[in-house]
């Protein structure tokens, strides 16, 4: 697969946009063609949030991912909304602490990650997003996991550098799940 059309969807506060940035920056450090496009709306905590990330070997046309080949569903409404839009043969990553149903399509590959629960267990309850990303990298090879910290350093501002380690820990937990 030379182009990853990734859609990350959930609610505000789950770090959906941040997770997308992490992938996009990692792609940039690997000299891939990348784009990152957030949904935007009236500023509201807890509202729906999603972002399109494209990682490709060729120039990115439309930055809007309407038929993802990688869907990361962080809550039930997101899975309900985007399951059928997912491209045939694509991969769906389901946050299974919050989503208690299975993927109904049988032409896609589904992965169930209890990311919120795992994040709490490693002492970083807000980093379910990073656990999901770890698993996505493992199953898609979209970016190189060995050098993941390079991408992370770009998205974590210097004043929050102490957060780097815990984010890496969450990524690893997801990668090894």
């Amino acid at each position: 697969m030379s182009t990853f059309n990734i859609l990350i969807a959930g609610f505000g506060g789950q770090g959906v946009l941040f997770a997308g940035k992490c992938l996009a920056y990692k792609g940039l450090t690997e000299n891939k063609q990348v784009s990152w496009l957030p949904s935007y709306g009236p500023e509201m905590r807890g509202g729906t949030a999603n972002c399109s990330v494209i990682l490709s070997d060729t120039p990115v046309g439309s930055p809007i991912v309407s038929n993802p080949n990688v869907l990361i569903a962080m809550n039930l409404p997101s899975l309900d909304k985007y399951e059928n839009a997912t491209a045939s043969g694509g991969k769906i990553f389901v946050e299974s602490t919050l989503i208690d149903r299975k993927v109904e399509r049988n032409d896609v590959e589904a992965f169930y990650i209890p990311a919120t629960k795992m994040a709490t267990e490693i002492g970083a309850p807000t980093l379910a997003n990073m656990i999901m990303i770890g698993k996505v990298i493992k199953e898609t090879g979209a970016v190189d996991f060995n050098t993941i910290s390079e991408g992370l350093k770009k998205v974590i501002p210097a004043r929050k550098a102490d957060m780097l380690e815990i984010n890496l820990k969450a990524l690893e937990a997801g990668y090894n799940f």
Binding site: S35, W36, L37, P38
Partner: peptide
Amino acid sequence: DGTMGQMMEP
């Protein structure tokens, strides 16, 4: 437009 304003690219 809103997309151009909000999207990130290298």
